[in-house]
């Protein structure tokens, strides 16, 4: 088993993926996520396949490209399929001796729109086919690149421009799609959730995913300061509370059925989901002009139910881990 960094000082000093000079919003954690992916794999050359998304647009405004690695963008919904082709091309050229044998890692990355919604077919296909690549979904819970429209990832009750918080309908009515369980159902060797506020955990997961021979998937929550309506300094604070409140627990799934919970520790006192929600302007209508207790209760109940489900899966995995 590979060694994983245990402290931040273990990570490489140099930037290996995204460079300074990108034009993501001030304080956007997508920049951090891209940096961490590069730092997670210090010993392997990367090829970066980007879906259309904030990260793509903001890092490559011609002729400024903020990438130290070979970087390619094709379209919105097809990063996984494009990565399939890159992987296949590289492997065949190496097999035929036309390019040097290298342990190149292909990283595909997309936002929640490109992953949950328009891109899920291509992702499902690529995972089913078993290409050796890592797909990373950075989830900011809406179509932020086009200006905050609801996606399958948007949480219940959230305001977006296409799920406005009106008198008749107070924000998005549906619940967040259980993406990782959908991915895990493919039975791939490794998939995991992560948070930009837990950099070493994310780095370990990316490294673990890279070490898999075959497809692996990491789903990382990335609160969007513009879309969620909070200050430029708060991305990591919000993402931390997403985990601590059990709204976005961090866990891993091995071979599609062995669930391992990482954070938060179930023994710790439960943080109310309200502590997480009240930082976010997109949910202000739950608190002002008057408190909407019934909606808050629905959200808390949903979080509790999903958490219980996850604990059950993790406990079952532990009990049945006799093989």
């Amino acid at each position: 088993m590979a060694d994983y960094p245990t402290k931040l000082a273990d990570l490489p000093k140099e930037e290996r993926s995204v460079s300074s000079g990108h034009r993501l919003c001030t304080g956007c954690a997508a920049g951090t996520i891209a940096r961490l992916v590069g730092k997670a794999v210090p010993d392997k050359p990367l090829m970066w396949v980007n879906a259309t998304c904030c990260m793509e647009v903001a890092t490559t405004i011609y002729p400024f490209a903020a990438w130290h690695v070979p970087w390619i963008h094709c379209a919105f919904e097809n990063a996984a399929a494009t990565a399939s082709g890159v992987r296949s091309g590289l492997d065949m050229l190496m097999k035929k001796g036309r390019i040097p044998q290298r342990d190149i890692e292909v990283i595909a990355i997309g936002g929640d729109g490109g992953t949950y919604d328009i891109g899920i077919q291509a992702i499902s296909g690529a995972i089913e086919r078993g290409h050796d690549f890592v797909y990373i979904c950075y989830d900011n819970e809406a179509y932020m690149n086009t200006g905050i429209q609801r996606s399958g990832a948007t949480m219940h009750a959230a305001w977006t421009t296409t799920s406005p918080a009106g008198e008749a309908i107070p924000g998005k009515q549906e619940f967040k799609k259980p993406l990782l369980r959908i991915v895990a159902a493919h039975g791939l060797e490794y998939c995991a959730t992560a948070s930009c506020s837990y950099p070493l955990d994310f780095v370990r997961k990316v490294k673990r995913a890279v070490d898999v021979k075959g497809p692996a998937f990491v789903h990382i929550i990335q609160p969007c300061l513009r879309g969620w309506r909070f200050g430029t300094e708060m991305s990591f604070q919000v993402a931390r509370l997403a985990v601590e409140s059990r709204f976005f627990p961090l866990y891993e799934v091995y071979w599609g059925h062995k669930f391992v919970l990482n954070y938060p520790n179930p023994i710790l006192t439960k943080v109310d989901v309200e502590d997480y929600l009240k930082l976010q302007g997109r949910l202000r209508h739950l608190f002002k002009p008057e408190r909407k207790q019934e909606i808050l209760d629905v959200i808390q109940a949903h979080v509790d139910k999903e958490w219980d489900k996850l604990l059950e899966l993790a406990e079952f995995s532990e009990r049945s881990a006799t093989y």
Binding site: S19, S20, G21, T26, G27, G31, P199, T232, S235
Partner: peptide, 30 residues
């Protein structure tokens, strides 16, 4: 601060010191 900076604007320099790269720091306050 070094790892979370979205703009890689905090640089690790020898020995055991940090510098803020004001060419790129957007001033987010993270």
């Amino acid at each position: 601060c070094w790892i979370l900076c979205p703009d890689a604007a905090i640089i690790r320099v020898e020995p055991n010191e940090l510098e803020i790269d004001l060419d790129y720091c957007k001033g987010c306050g993270v």
